Amino acid sequence: MILAGDLNDFEFSTAISKLTAAGLTDLPAALLDSDRYTYIFDGNSQVLDHLLISPALVTAGYAFDVVHTDSEFTARPTDHDPQIARLTIP
């Protein structure tokens, strides 16, 4: 299972915590603190976009990154950065 999108909620929120408590892995949370953001607001880097995967996909293997192409620049098509995941489908 894959749940992805602009959930407009922080990684420490109740909703995200319930999803991870149910067994889903929030891939942005696996990044280093310095890379863990998908959006910048008033100089604060934040995770508002999430890509959560099921335990079977975690076990099968994955690669994940947030490509910081938009949030750090003033002239941009969006204020959110794209996320890229390469999943091994069991």
Score class of each variant (00 low, 15 high):
Arg86Ala: 11
Asp79Gln: 01
Ser34Asp: 09
Asp35Asn: 07
Ala75Pro: 04
Asp79Trp: 00
Val66Ile: 11
Leu27Ser: 05
Ala60Thr: 10
His50Thr: 09
Ala22Ile: 03
Asp42Gln: 13
Ile53Trp: 02
Ala56Ile: 14
Val58Leu: 13
Gly5His: 08
Ile2Tyr: 02
Leu19Ile: 01
Met1Leu: 15
Gly5Tyr: 05
Leu87Thr: 06
Gly43Glu: 02
Leu48Glu: 03
Phe64Leu: 15
Leu51Phe: 01
Tyr39Ala: 13
Ala56Gly: 07
Tyr62Arg: 10
Leu48Arg: 08
Ala63Gln: 15
Ala60His: 05
Gly61Trp: 07
Ser54Gly: 06
Arg36Ala: 06
Ser71Phe: 06
Asn44Glu: 11
Asp79Ser: 06
Tyr37Trp: 01
Ile89Ser: 00
Ile53His: 10
Asp70Tyr: 13
Asp9Thr: 15
Glu11Arg: 02
Glu11Thr: 14
Ala21Phe: 07
Ala60Trp: 13
Ser34Thr: 08
Arg76Ala: 12
Ser71Leu: 06
Ala85His: 03
Ser17Tyr: 05
Phe12Val: 12
Met1Gln: 12
Val67Arg: 12
Glu11Leu: 09
Gly61Leu: 08
Ala15Ser: 07
Ile89Met: 10
Asp6Trp: 02
Ala56Val: 05
Arg86Thr: 06
Thr69Ser: 01
Thr78Ser: 07
Pro28Tyr: 01
Pro55Asp: 12
Val66Trp: 00
Gly61Val: 01
His80Trp: 07
His68Pro: 00
Val47Asp: 04
Thr14Glu: 13
Glu11Lys: 01
Ala56Lys: 09
Leu3Trp: 09
Ser13Met: 00
Ala60Asn: 02
Leu24Cys: 13
Glu72Ala: 06
Ala56Ser: 03
Gly43Asp: 02
Val47Lys: 00
Ser54Phe: 04
Thr88Ala: 15
Phe73Ile: 03
Val58Asn: 00
Asp9Met: 10
Leu27Pro: 01
Asp81His: 08
Asp6Leu: 03
Phe64Ser: 01
Arg76Pro: 04
Leu19Asp: 00
Gly43Val: 05
Leu24Ile: 14
Ile53Gln: 10
His80Gln: 03
Ala85Phe: 12
Phe12Leu: 11
Phe73Trp: 14
Ile84Trp: 05
Thr59Ile: 15
Ala60Gly: 04
Leu31Val: 06
Ser34Ala: 11
Glu72Thr: 12
Asp33Thr: 15
Phe41Tyr: 11
Gly5Asp: 05
Glu72Lys: 10
Ile53Ser: 08
Asn8Val: 00
Leu87Arg: 03
Leu52Met: 09
Ala60Asp: 00
Gly5Lys: 02
Arg76Asp: 09
Thr69Ile: 00
Thr59Pro: 06
Thr25Met: 07
Leu19Asn: 15
Ala63Ile: 09
Thr78Asp: 00
Thr74His: 05
Leu24Ser: 14
Asp33Asn: 08
